[in-house]
Each structure stands twice: as structure tokens, then as C-alpha cells.
Design a protein around this nucleic acid. Structure first.
Length: 745
RNA sequence: GGGUUUGUAGCUCAGUUGGUUAGAGCGCUGCAUUCACAUUGCAGAGGUCCCUGGUUCGAUCCCAGGCAAGCCCACCA
């Protein structure tokens, strides 16, 4: 054995050893209890970050611990297509080539992103393997595998026949100039001066930058505690407008800032995100007054057909003439949303989207947690879940992006003349408009081939089909929300609905993930798991805290404070990094990257190495003197109190680790092991052994303590313990430490 | 602005179901060094447990208010 533990040399060797023995292959064994974890799939296109390291470390502890306890364990790896995030990354690549997504038809764009991701996904896979994670790679899945798409389509069909799917308006960031929607991340906010118009509005005066949306107003809101207006709340007011007098309800909603303007806000749910939300809270009608071409529609009466700014100008003039305009604040500075592509003003617009009714799904999902059928650790996170489930509203499952599972709905163009489509014509130019109009100048084939996006009216007729059902049909261009497909993850990775794996390994034992996706992911998996199988997909949920940067802020590229695990693994070893992170947090709270602990555990690995080296050297010495070391099991009762003491402490350790691990208290277990090995075994017992006359007995005890300790520590620091095991195991022991039995409490 | 969490040693974090001397790692100070390990050993210093009130025989822990910070969500008609 070398004088110093060399993780750089040892870790890859040990990793190969596990791989060659195929120790982590999940085996269906009716005589054993299954223990299953599904790895939350990292972005296939991403790189390993500290969160992944912590996640893999914790799950690996559980898997190795349970495996050594005799369970038939399975830990399933996979990667995520990460819809939106990846599409953005890909579009940045396009930008380098001076291209954008608008230069491609939908099918080509999808294929290109597919190739891009395929060429990158080996990176994250290799990085996860390098961590020593005991995953069964023969069961690897990708979130766009055929089996995933098939299951998602089946669920969608089932939901449709159960009456859970409907199409309704949903507010999106729409750019009338580009003729397309943008995600929140593709929106820039710029500060700009615009006139703020104060206008008479029934009994009120209110301030607005956008008088042209007045025709879409369906309520007026004030703050519920605003004394000036309290008496109006719940009543109807009569408003004199440019198109005559109309009636509106006054609502009280705390999103209104009483300090701003006059403290009264007009609510236009169709053209403002806040108003849309308020509209949903108060069940208000949604009245769209601006079309997808960026012009006022028929509801705007004489202003119909005008562009937004044109209409605004005219409306202000007319308001003034009618004496409805009180004053104009020309110096009003506010932030305006513009699209990243051309810096055009975003027009928040309601477009038909696909929704899932969540009431029938969320009730059993909420009950499962309340009844303790699914237990959440740490317990205080349960509140996040329960509150979210109680507040959860219907789920918009469609996304206006390409990179994802395309919704299997088809629109027959003859039934739906009002379909609005964007496509590349044969000259590569983007054309958009109503299909019935476009067909006058373009063939269906040209439109179909160059199709980029389509918007089907709310009441459009559609067919659900995996393949094109008949001629003259265009497929919905929206994709499913990633959480809709990843909500099936525990099912699809295990071969739902009919496979031996599924029957044996489902439901899984624990879902381990960062707390930040409890709302998005955990809740959806529970809902869909119960909906499809009648059982929640896991018994326990363990939520770890987020690893923050040294400045205690969230790591982000823009802050430049990202700590890259790939710098730490070569320097300190995967064992030390894993263990450092695990002991950095005890209760699931976020924590700053504990570099000190990583160093401490690097030193610890070396300490362990030298403890066993000492043991082996002493044995050599004894042998050279012709003295035998007895087997521990053959020792008579003549051991000393110091021996008994260390044996007792070992068994105390075993039970405290067992207790801590079964409550997911990883750092407590880790620290106890550290304290025992370093301060009890090394500092006291080994120092004592040096002076013992009966070294044969002492070394026998030491050997036993070391071997048992390696087993206890193995789930936490698998590499160094396995490497030491090679040297200190006895003839009758398993060749691999991971195949040994975990000490029983 | 809304929600939520946190505030314990120089730093990163445990802990206290309220009760004598509040813990770990790192850092710091002093000593040791052919003895498995300097990625070492031994000894030690260092804390009004954020502030102010309340409950209590007793509060760092429970309650209220304040201050500060982090995170999530909105970014304002």
C-alpha cells in the first residue's frame, strides 16, 4: 500500500471493478424485498453541477445501504430532454451561425435539436458514472424515448375520454410583428417613457398607459382595504365610454397598489398578465380586442382594423373630445416587455391552449400525503406541498415550443378554415395567415412541409391520433408541458403498464430530489401515478436543500459564482466531495458549498487508508516474528476492557447510523462515523495497540473493527472503503465490499 | 410588493421536545516530529445562541414585534 491514498488512481479502477461484476443490475428476486429509486433525470444536454453530485450522493447512500441490507435494489438512470431550456441553448447555437428558429420548418428544427442533444448527452452520462453511482445502466431511459411518448399519448387519450381535457384561452406573450409567442425567458424588459393617461371611468378616475384596451375591460379593481373605494366593491358601476355606456363590476383584489395613480385599475384579462390572473380569481369574462395581426378587432367598433398605436392615438383624441380625459402624465417611466428577437412590443394575448382539469386528480394526491401514504422528509416541506395542492388550478399542458412531445391532435383544414398557420414557403420566407386564405395562393403540401406553428380556434374540431389520420390534416404544433411527460417518469422507466419490472419494482421506495421542484414535478408524479395505477409512485419523498455558492447566493452563470464539481473531484476525490456535501446540510435547508468539509473528508480518506496500512504492517511484523493472529470469532473471552469498549462503541455506532439513515438524517450518520473512526479508533484504540503486549489479540480486534467500519462507511465513501477492503478482507469474505452484509443494529 | 425560510465560535453548519460546563469541521495559537498518516499528534483560545418585549421558577429554544439576509413568484394599470 502506498503511503498516501491516491484517489485519482483508485477511483476509476474501483469503478471498473463494480462495472465488470455488474453489481448494480436490478434483479427480480421473489425472495427479496425490492428497493427502488428512480434518478431524477438531469438535462441530457447539460453538465454535472453540485446539485447533481448531492443528489447522486444521497441516492447512492440509500441504494448501497439497502443493497447491503439484503434488499433487491434498483436505481434507474435517465436523462431529460428539458424542453424549453434546451431549445434556448440550441437557439443560441443557431445565433452564432446567424440563424434563428424562424429559418426552419418545425420538423427540420426538431430533427436538428435531436441531433444536437444526441451528440452531447454522453457527457452528463459519463460524469454521473464517474461519481461511482450504483445505477443500473441497462435500464437507462431518455424522456423522448418511444415508450415515453407512447405512454404520454395513452394518458392523454384516457384523459380525453374521461373528460379531463379541454381547450381554453390562456395568456401568452405574443408578438404581433413576429406572429408567434415567446416564453417569459425570451422577453426583455426595457424601461421607457410613455404617456400615462388619467381618464374618467364611471365614478372613478383611473390611470392607464393603454387606453386602447378599454374595450376589453371586464371589471374595475381596487385594493380591498382602500377606504376611498370600499363601498363600491361587489357593486356594478356605469361607465360612459367611446362606444356608449356600459356596466362593469368592481372587484377588490390585493394585487392593486392603492398608492399608484388613483388606486383604481381597469381589468383587461385578455391583454395583461396581472389582469388575466385577477380575472381567473374572480371568474371574469375574457374579451380579446386585439387580433393576432396586431390590429384592433370588431369589438373596437370604429377603431377596428387600426394598429395598436394608431388606435391609441385616435382613442385619446376622442376621449379628450368627449371630456373623458382628465390629464396626461408625459413623464411616466415604466418597464415594457419586448421580444428578444426584434425588440417589438409584446402584446399579452389569450390563445387557446390545452388544459387538464385537476380537481379529480389533486384530491387523491393531497389525501395520499395527508394520510401518510406518501411521507415527505423533512416534514416541514409537507406544508409547501399541501398549500400548493390546495391552491392548484387547472393545468395548462400545452407549450408553444418545438422541443418536446408534440400533442397528438390533428385539425382537418376543411373543418377549420380559421386555423392560423405560420410556414416557410418554398423560397424560405415566413408566411402567416388564415389557412382558408393561404390556400388560395399556396398548395396544402407546401404549407404542410414548411409548417412552423399553428393556432387553432378554441372551438376547433380535432382528432386524436398518433399518426396522421387522413389527408388534409395538420398536427397541433404545441408540445406537452415537460412536467406532463416527466410526471410519468416512475411509470415509464419501469415499463408501465405491463412488465415484470413494473410489477416487482413499482411503487418505488423513495423519490429524492431538490425541494424546488416539489410543485412542478413531485405533485404531478403523485397525481398521475394515482390516476393511472391507483397507487402513489413512491412511499417516501426526501427533499434536499440547494447547494449555494460561497457567497450564500444561488449559483448562476450571470452572477459568475458557479462552483464546478469537476474542479473538485480531481483535487479531492469523488468520495470527499460527496461526503462533504452530505454532511453540509442536515435538515434539507439550503447551504453554502462547504469546502472545508470536502477537505476534511479528503483527509479522512487518507486517515482510513493509513489506519488499514498500520494494521497490515503490524500483522506483517507479527508474522515475521512467527506469531499468529487469531480469527476474531475464535477469540476467547480474554480480551481487555479497551477491546470491549471499542466493540461497544462500534455497536453503538451501528445502531445510531441505522436510526439516522432510516430517518434520512445523512449528515448525522456521516458525522458519527467520522467521529468514531478518527477519534475513537485512530486516536485512542490504535495508539493503545502500539503499547499492547498481547498484540495478536488487539490486532484481531482492530481487524474486525476496521472491516465492520468499512461496511458501515461504504455507502457514503464507496471508493476508498472498497479499495481498503481489497487489502484487509479475509479469505471467507466477499471479494467486493458492496456484496457484503451491512452490520445489524 | 406577495409568499417562504434563515439569523448559534473568524468561516460553513449541527443542536437544544425550555433546566448545571452550547457542539463539529475548517481556520487560529502553542508544543511535538526518524514511531501508519504533516492530508499527522497533543494541548488551547474563541460564543450577551440577531435585537426588544412577553409567557415561565428558569428562554438560545415557545409567543409577539423589530432589524438583517437568502430563496420562490410578481414586476406593476
Amino acid at each position: 500500500m502506498e503511503k498516501q491514498y491516491n484517489h485519482r488512481e483508485v477511483e476509476p479502477k474501483i469503478n471498473d471493478k463494480w462495472k465488470n461484476h455488474d453489481v448494480f443490475k436490478g434483479i427480480i428476486d421473489p425472495d427479496k424485498k425490492p428497493y427502488t429509486i428512480i434518478l431524477p433525470p438531469p438535462n441530457a444536454n447539460g453538465r454535472l453541477h453540485m446539485g447533481h453530485v448531492l443528489m447522486c450522493a444521497i441516492e447512492d447512500v440509500l441504494i448501497r445501504w439497502k443493497k447491503m441490507q439484503g434488499y433487491s435494489t434498483l436505481w434507474v438512470p435517465g436523462t431529460d430532454h428539458a424542453g424549453f431550456e434546451t431549445q434556448i441553448v440550441y437557439e443560441k447555437e443557431l445565433k452564432k451561425k446567424d440563424k434563428s428558429r424562424f429559418d426552419y420548418d418545425r420538423n427540420t428544427l426538431y430533427r436538428n435539436i435531436w441531433d444536437f442533444v444526441q451528440s452531447n448527452k454522453h457527457i452528463i452520462e459519463e460524469q454521473i458514472r464517474g461519481m461511482g453511482s450504483g445505477l443500473d445502466w441497462s435500464r437507462y431511459s431518455f424522456t423522448l424515448d418511444d415508450k415515453v411518448i407512447k405512454t404520454v399519448y395513452d394518458t392523454f387519450s384516457k384523459m380525453i375520454s374521461d373528460g379531463l381535457v379541454y381547450r381554453d384561452d390562456y395568456i401568452v406573450n405574443y408578438c404581433p410583428k413576429c406572429g408567434t409567442t415567446f416564453s417569459d425567458l425570451e422577453i426583455d424588459h426595457i424601461t421607457r417613457k410613455d404617456p400615462l393617461y388619467y381618464m374618467k371611468y364611471g365614478p372613478f378616475i383611473l390611470a392607464t398607459v393603454r387606453p386602447e384596451t378599454k374595450f376589453g375591460d371586464t371589471a374595475v379593481a381596487v385594493h380591498p382595504n382602500d377606504k376611498r373605494y370600499k363601498e363600491y366593491i361587489g357593486k356594478e358601476i356605469e361607465v360612459e365610454g367611446l362606444l356608449g355606456t356600459f356596466k362593469l363590476k368592481v372587484i377588490g383584489d390585493s394585487f392593486v397598489d392603492p398608492e399608484f395613480g388613483t388606486g383604481v385599475v381597469k381589468i383587461t384579462p385578455a391583454h395583461d398578465k396581472n389582469d388575466y390572473e385577477a380575472g381567473r380569481r374572480h371568474n371574469l369574462e375574457i374579451k380579446s380586442v386585439i387580433g393576432l395581426d396586431g390590429r384592433m378587432n370588431d369589438l373596437a367598433g370604429p377603431y377596428a382594423g387600426m394598429k395598436i398605436m394608431e388606435a391609441r392615438k385616435k382613442i385619446v383624441e376622442d376621449l379628450n373630445k368627449k371630456g373623458l380625459l382628465v390629464k396626461i402624465d408625459e413623464n411616466y417611466e415604466h418597464s415594457v416587455a419586448v421580444c428578444y428577437r426584434g425588440k417589438h412590443d409584446i402584446e399579452p394575448t389569450v390563445l387557446p391552449n390545452w388544459f387538464v382539469k385537476v380537481d379529480p386528480l389533486k384530491k387523491p394526491a393531497l389525501e395520499a400525503v395527508k394520510r401518510g401514504e406518501v411521507k415527505i422528509y423533512p416534514k416541514w416541506q409537507e406544508i409547501t406541498y399541501i398549500r400548493w395542492m390546495e391552491e392548484m388550478r387547472d393545468w395548462p399542458i400545452s407549450r408553444q415550443i418545438v422541443w418536446g412531445i408534440r400533442i397528438p391532435a390533428w385539425y382537418n383544414i376543411n373543418d377549420n378554415p380559421d386555423l392560423i398557420v405560420n410556414f416557410l414557403d418554398k423560397n424560405g420566407k415566413v408566411v402567416f395567415g388564415k389557412i382558408s386564405e393561404l390556400l388560395k395562393n399556396y398548395s396544402f403540401e407546401e404549407i404542410e412541409k414548411g409548417l412552423q406553428t399553428l393556432v387553432a380556434p378554441k372551438d376547433a374540431r380535432y382528432l386524436i391520433s398518433e399518426k396522421k389520420p387522413k389527408e388534409y390534416c395538420l398536427q397541433e404544433t404545441d408540445t406537452f408541458d415537460t412536467w406532463f411527460s416527466s410526471g410519468h417518469w416512475p411509470l415509464v422507466t419501469l415499463g408501465y403498464p405491463a412488465s415484470d419490472d413494473f410489477r416487482y419494482f413499482y411503487p418505488t421506495s423513495v423519490l429524492e430530489t431538490g425541494w424546488e421542484i416539489i410543485r412542478f414535478w413531485v405533485s404531478r408524479m403523485i397525481m398521475l401515478g394515482i390516476y393511472l395505477t391507483g397507487k402513489p409512485p413512491f412511499k417516501d419523498v426526501y427533499l434536499h436543500g440547494l447547494v449555494r455558492a460561497f457567497d450564500n447566493k444561488k449559483m448562476s452563470k450571470s452572477l459568475g459564482n458557479v462552483i464546478d464539481p469537476l474542479e473538485f473531484i480531481p483535487e479531492y476525490g469523488a468520495d470527499a466531495l460527496r461526503m462533504g456535501l452530505i454532511s453540509g446540510t442536515a435538515n434539507g435547508k439550503d447551504f453554502a458549498f462547504p469546502k472545508d468539509k470536502v477537505i476534511a473528508f479528503r483527509n479522512f480518506a487518507n486517515k482510513l487508508w493509513n489506519m488499514s496500512r498500520f494494521y497490515l504492517l503490524m500483522i506483517e511484523e507479527m508474522k515475521s516474528k512467527g506469531r499468529d493472529i487469531k480469527k476474531y470469532s475464535d477469540l476467547d473471552k480474554n480480551i481487555l476492557n479497551t477491546d470491549r469498549d471499542i466493540i461497544n462503541k462500534l455497536s453503538e455506532l451501528i445502531s445510531s447510523v441505522d436510526k439516522a439513515l432510516s430517518k434520512y438524517r445523512f449528515s448525522e450518520a456521516a458525522d458519527n462515523i467520522y467521529q468514531f473512526l478518527w477519534h475513537e479508533v485512530a486516536d485512542r484504540y490504535i495508539e493503545d495497540v502500539k503499547n499492547r503486549e498481547d498484540k495478536d489479540i488487539a490486532l484481531s480486534v482492530l481487524g474486525y473493527v476496521l472491516r465492520e467500519s468499512m461496511k458501515i462507511l461504504h455507502p457514503f465513501m464507496p471508493f476508498v472503503t472498497e479499495a481498503i477492503w481489497e487489502n484487509i478482507r479475509e479469505e471467507s469474505d466477499s471479494e467486493l465490499l458492496i456484496l457484503e452484509n451491512y452490520p445489524r443494529a
